[in-house]
Write a protein that binds this DNA or RNA. Structure first.
Lengths: 136, 136
DNA sequence: GAGGTATGGTCTCTTATGTAGACCACATCT
DNA sequence: AGATGTGGTCTACATAAGAGACCATACCTC
């Protein structure tokens, strides 16, 4: 039932995972671990989504996300910058302003993110129902 | 440059986000926040991938993931069960064994996960290069 | 029959990780 | 003169995660 399903993407995932079975717990070797570690950072995906409309400044990002601390905003943006997903440009205004934008690599990541958010939107009701059922 | 790009999925994401702009920081209202909070839990995606091959027992999951503690394994599986993505079945063996499996909803989430892992695999090299450049 | 192994957890202790908020220097607007 | 906005950093505190002991039971081996 699980395996013989034409549109089931499981085999693809597993083929990928299997290729790194030797060191499944080493992010330096397994790209899935590596990217998942970034995805699993609570603010990074949200920031990518905010930047998908175009370049934004530090304080604009903080306002729009709403509940992120400056500390985590700084750190998350640095991480994204380090991974080459986001670029950082300082303008010599007084006081200096800083603009963050998606790189080409960052823009390419919007596709998987979009698929994820689509799924989230489509299935949110079912998840909420499941929670109510579980808690009762 | 950012907006007028035919294959750019950004507008889709933003349309979704915009629909919840009133309470952008409330996971109970915004499905993207809600699902992202789950995705951002470090072990949940990895467990979903492990379960994509079929039902697995508690200790099998722990062995395969490799570096997850029992505590986090229990908690992550409970969270996934609560969200209706994973089912839990106890068999009356001695000692009792417990089997975890994906639900239909859980299987449907494999598609976005697969897209994400594909992207991860395709772009891992570029990310690593960016890191080297940044650190240097 | 004593000791080891396996089952799926829970409990406690310690250590990361994240948050809240003050603080900074400077300039502009009121 | 005083408030406001810039992009951060620093410190103190709260929360989350990790390590490992412990549990009852039943097998298998010696």
């Amino acid at each position: 039932m699980t395996r013989a399903h034409a549109s089931n993407p499981a085999p693809d995932i597993l083929t990928l995972m299997a290729a790194y079975e030797g060191a499944p717990d080493d992010p330096a070797v397994c790209p899935i671990r590596d990217v998942l570690d970034r995805v699993a950072q609570k603010w990074t995906l949200l920031l990518m989504i905010q930047l998908s409309t175009g370049p934004k400044r530090f304080s604009a990002l903080q306002r729009q996300v709403g509940d992120i601390s400056k500390r985590m905003l700084t750190q998350s943006l640095r991480d994204l910058e380090r991974d080459g997903l986001v670029s950082r440009e300082v303008f010599p205004t007084k006081p200096p302003s800083v603009e963050y934008a998606l790189t080409d690599l960052g823009r390419s990541s919007l596709e998987p993110i979009a698929v994820l958010t689509q799924w989230a939107d489509n299935n949110h009701d079912r998840i909420r129902q499941a929670r109510v059922a579980f808690d009762g």
